[in-house]
């Protein structure tokens, strides 16, 4: 199960809406081993595409250095789908390289309806999990 606070949930959805019709992406970092999604880090989609996203390679290195310095890991890796459901695509599955992360998918295909779902992706196997939104502290 993914537990996420309201402010972070809202920030992910807002980022996805803002970058629509391109895909938006980012992480929520947290203390290593804690499974606590605490620090919202929106990233630029270097592909600037409605059907693909990628972290720029220099940004990726800077992000991981920063997390290392803070003894953090990516607890959530999120991105949006802009025309399809919030379910990992075949490409998402092939790239999924953080077996400990919650992969959050947001679909912006409907303007007035939020689709926010979370998955584990381990060795090519996708399992959906419940999302619990807790009040922000």
């Amino acid at each position: 199960m993914l537990r996420i606070d309201r402010a972070t949930y809202d920030a992910i959805v807002a980022h996805a809406r803002r970058d629509h019709p391109d895909e938006a992406c980012g992480v929520v970092a947290g203390p290593a081993g804690s499974d606590r999604a605490e620090r919202f880090v929106p990233m630029q989609n270097a592909a600037r595409s409605p059907t693909f996203y990628e972290f720029d390679s220099a940004d990726l290195l800077a992000l991981y250095r920063d997390m290392d310095d803070r003894d953090e890991e990516p607890v959530v890796v999120y991105h949006s789908h802009t025309a399809t459901e919030a379910y990992p695509s075949r490409t998402d599955i092939s790239y999924a390289g953080e077996p400990g992360a919650h992969y959050v998918l947001v679909s912006t295909r409907h303007q007035d309806e939020v689709e926010f779902r979370s998955y584990r992706i381990v060795d090519g196997t996708v399992s959906e999990e419940a999302v619990t939104v807790v009040p922000s502290t």
């Binding site: 992480v27 996203y53 990628e54 972290f55 990726l60 991981y64 890796v77 490409t91 998402d92 390289g97």
Partner: peptide, 10 residues
């Protein structure tokens, strides 16, 4: 040398 997983998808 640093190896990182690319963060990307569709």
């Amino acid at each position: 040398v640093t190896v990182l997983p690319a963060v990307a998808g569709g």
